[in-house]
Computed example of a mutant assay.
Amino acid sequence: MMKWKIAAILAVSALFVVILSARLLEQTENTQLRMAAGQGITEEPALQVTDVNLVDLLSALPLHARIVRADLRGTTLTVDLKVRSSASGTGPVYEDMAELGSLALLRSHNINQLRLRLVAEDAWTGRQHLLLASEMDRSDLSGDTGQLLEGLKTAGNAPLGENLKARLRIVETALWKKAYPQSDI
């Protein structure tokens, strides 16, 4: 009787080890496949942006400008960025726009529109003045979203092409053109 109990315990233990080993092996193979495929090819699970995680997600982005306002209403994310100085050119501004666009339209599954405004603050009065605005809509960008955002991110200090401006619905104010004259060459 005692031998049967020991045999049953050993059998259950062996079965547990086999199941656990199979799961570990599967996870290891998936990790190795992802590493072999390269970081850009692997699929990330779709992100849900909510009021609860919005601040954490935005603060984790490597932005040059400071976020002065963020609002999530339904499937629309609205973000206002305060540009501190035009001395570093348009490159950092375009990079920030691409980062926010990527979060909203590539990494998340529940944001369909990103409304982005870049503002400058008057040092004397504290009033904010609109420099540039963009309204990126997932349905308008269709399958080109990644390419368009990459073009924005890598634009540097060069002027944006009219096609890119039109697709990302970028509107430059007269104040933008005055602060960043190289953007309108």
Rank of each mutant, 00 (worst) to 15 (best):
L10V: 13
L10G: 05
L15D: 10
L15G: 15
L15Q: 10
F16C: 11
V18L: 10
V18W: 04
I19W: 07
I19M: 07
L20A: 15
L20W: 15
S21E: 09
L24K: 08
L24T: 07
Q27E: 11
Q27W: 10
T28Q: 15
E29Y: 10
T31V: 13
Q32A: 09
L33G: 05
L33K: 15
R34P: 01
M35E: 15
A36L: 11
Q39G: 13
I41S: 05
T42S: 11
T42F: 02
E43C: 09
E44I: 13
E44T: 14
P45G: 08
P45C: 04
A46F: 06
L47W: 00
Q48G: 07
V49Y: 04
V49N: 03
D51V: 06
N53P: 11
V55A: 14
V55K: 12
V55E: 13
L58Y: 04
L61W: 00
L63K: 04
H64N: 14
A65R: 00
R66W: 01
R66Q: 12
I67N: 00
I67S: 02
D71A: 10
L72E: 00
R73A: 12
G74A: 00
T75E: 13
L77G: 04
T78W: 05
T78A: 07
V79P: 02
V79W: 01
V79S: 02
D80I: 08
D80Y: 10
V83T: 08
S86C: 05
A87K: 12
G89A: 04
T90R: 01
G91K: 03
P92C: 03
E95N: 12
E95I: 15
M97P: 05
A98S: 11
E99W: 10
L103Q: 00
L105W: 02
L106A: 02
I111E: 01
Q113M: 07
L114A: 06
R115G: 03
R115H: 00
L118G: 08
L118P: 01
A123N: 03
W124F: 13
H129L: 09
L130E: 06
L132S: 04
L132N: 02
A133M: 11
A133C: 05
A133E: 12
E135S: 09
R138C: 01
R138N: 00
D140V: 07
S142V: 10
D144T: 13
D144V: 08
T145L: 03
Q147R: 15
Q147P: 02
